[in-house]
Amino acid sequence: MTRAPLLEIEDLRVSFATPTGPVEVVKGLSLTLGREERLGIVGESGSGKSMTGRSILRLIRAPGRQTAKTLRFDGLDLMAQGNRQMRAIRGARISMIMQDPKFSLHPVMTIGQQIAEALRVHEKLPRRDLNARVIEMLTSVRINDPERVAKMYPHEVSGGMGQRVMIAMMLIPRPQLLIADEPTSALDVSVQAQVLDLIQELVTGNGMGLILISHDLNLVSRYCDRIVVMNGGEVVETCAARDLHEATHPYTRGLLAAQPRMQETRATLPVLDRTEGAGT
């Protein structure tokens, strides 16, 4: 079976111990991701979307606990891998782009060093080839004058450029699956489009799978094939991106309606009913 899905998750649960007993933040999530498929996970803060992304890389730290009936990546049972084996997978075969380049880049290493490190950990290469790959990668994320930028430190570049550096770092070992956790929420609208287009292009060009995690429904529907909507640790709805506006679940409808539109005529925005929660 060569066309098995790239990623299969069945009954994924993540819980944290609290003084009043364990709290489940992901409650029995199941999904599959095909090869070269682009999946969007959407939800509000606290819906468990980031935890889902992290648990695919087994990055839930104690006291958090993660269990799953199946967590299979490319035929490999991730739940059965030890720490050392996971380390060989992280970055090399599955990589993750975090939210804010300001906090995710090493402040006292040059950009070139950091990108080279990502590659060196997983591949043995002569230094000259290493440098050539770094420059090539920086060029492919559309950084002008890559030789100069490689010698710069993270504080010397703008947010959009920092995020492109992150993308370069994540993609240089040529992973099969890219998880992007709110890759653009720290960026301006105009830069957002550039960064997402870039991710899009590199993902499709290299036959990677993509999981895009975001709270922005419209954004995700523009860049993904399929959308999973999460609320309170559960998947409430799965639909094709182009059918998002025909979504049926009240929560999804609520989220869509709560967003102001460019051609806004409503006097007030409908809000989600929060009677069971504490309210805002």
Partner: peptide
């Protein structure tokens, strides 16, 4: 968040 944004804007 979007839904909270709606409440504050209202």
């Amino acid at each position: 968040d979007v839904s909270v944004q709606a409440e504050i804007l209202n």
